[in-house]
Write a protein that binds this DNA or RNA. Sequence first.
DNA 1: TGCTATGTAGGAATCATTCCTGTCTAGCAA
DNA 2: TTGCTAGACAGGAATGATTCCTACATAGCA
Lengths: 150, 150
Amino acid sequence: MKLDPQDIEARFRRHAVRVTRQRAAIYAALVETTSHPSADDLYRLVKRQQPMMSRNTVYYTLGVLRNAGLIREVNVGHDMARYDGNVSLHHHLICLGCGQILDVLDEDLNRLQLSNGQARGFDVLRHRVEFHGYCVSCQQAERNVSPRRK
Amino acid sequence: MKLDPQDIEARFRRHAVRVTRQRAAIYAALVETTSHPSADDLYRLVKRQQPMMSRNTVYYTLGVLRNAGLIREVNVGHDMARYDGNVSLHHHLICLGCGQILDVLDEDLNRLQLSNGQARGFDVLRHRVEFHGYCVSCQQAERNVSPRRK
DNA sequence: TGCTATGTAGGAATCATTCCTGTCTAGCAA
DNA sequence: TTGCTAGACAGGAATGATTCCTACATAGCA
Ligand SMILES: [Mn+2]
Ligand SMILES: [Mn+2]
Ligand SMILES: [Zn+2]
Ligand SMILES: [Zn+2]
């Protein structure tokens, strides 16, 4: 989704986040993609427009935006952290081959909850569902290497 | 669950894993706890019985056992990897305060699957459900610091 | 317009994990 | 039972994503 600078500024102010050129660029990049980029992906992307951008600013800004609730962090295994500009409730479908992350929008998944017995007194704030498998092109790539499915 | 050395040896042989003193100790520690320890937790634990044990051996062994399907890796955020000696299908309840991980056994969660439209051609091999919240003692600890819920 | 709390750049530090290397040994076959 | 060899082990070095530190810059406010 394309965002103009006024929208970004308004969102930042609504969440008490100071408006800077660096933050606007990082946030815009994140909202305008569906690829769930890593901090370093964003660093390289934004550095093209702002060559002085430091890697530290990307990490710091992602922390600020996350704490403000403007973005989400998505964790896949122990690879680099991935970020999501879409904060509406949704889940993910992850390719074990190439690492791509696709959104899964499913109200039934959003409504999952533990029974009282299962929750063991926890105050459960949220849940996460991940589906893991191989995307179409990774399935084909594997077929080229070994004749049959692993 | 308590395992005797013969059981461990039999399981290793069934999965074509070479039997060594180090591996048996690491695997036994993992199966006999429900705490989902990290590699370093296991290192410190097993080092008490085998002072020569190297941290590298723990990592190497955990990799071997994981590839053999004898243990699972559980990832919580980007903290250290956590390991699980229980490979039967189940999910997890995680405390955001102290990091403890409890098992969730629920056949309905085990059966979740994506519709064809949602799967986008993926070959989906498995899924994971995590519930995040605060355990009883972390809820109390927080109450001691600030008068009301965050 | 000036003050000050906050943000930024750049470099150093951290630390879980992986890599490397020289022994050692489990498992197999003669 | 013995000897061979692929694989395992210990210890230390290297890696790399992330965090920490510090001096300078600036957003937001009065
Ligand atoms: Mn998403
Ligand atoms: Mn478990
Ligand atoms: Zn793929
Ligand atoms: Zn807790």
